[in-house]
């Protein structure tokens, strides 16, 4: 005998009043506020950092940008010019390579047709199979 849907519903309804123990929500709220405060601090740090960076960039006017770009270009060019790019290759001692000729393997001999026995006695009947 199976329980009816109603009986199952009644069994499940017994769980309806299940609640956390007393004082749970007070602790929960404390933890929640703590987490929110920590997140707010993190957020404000990131916001401050971003604000400072953007303020620094906004302080730099277009003329200063041009000077900065020119300076950067000059330093890169100087670095390229001053770097010794004609590096000498080290003379590595040459060593003779040993080699010898290996004869190619002889191909296998093909059986000649005239050596095959093609006499009528060795020929089978067409269409017949002997098991």
């Amino acid at each position: 005998m199976k329980p009816t849907i109603e009986q199952i519903g009644n069994l499940l309804a017994l769980k309806r009043d299940e609640r956390p123990e007393e004082g749970y929500w007070q602790d929960f709220l404390c933890e929640f506020h703590q987490a929110q405060r920590e997140q707010a601090v993190k957020k404000s740090l990131v916001t401050n950092w971003f604000g400072r960076v953007s303020a620094w960039f906004s302080d730099v006017g277009p003329s200063k940008w041009a000077y900065g770009a020119g300076l950067a270009y000059a330093s890169v060019a100087a670095a390229l010019l001053l770097t010794p790019h004609t590096a000498k290759l080290e003379n590595t001692p040459s060593s003779p390579v040993k080699y010898e000729l290996v004869p190619a393997p002889t191909p296998p001999t093909v059986e000649q047709l005239n050596q095959l026995d093609l006499s009528p006695s060795t020929q089978g009947n067409v269409g017949e199979q002997v098991f």
Partner: peptide
């Protein structure tokens, strides 16, 4: 924040049941 706390306390038990 107290208003949101009130919402947590109002729906906390129901949501606890659902998740648990």
């Amino acid at each position: 924040t107290r208003a949101f706390d009130a919402l947590i306390l109002k729906y906390g038990d129901k949501l606890y049941g659902l998740v648990y």
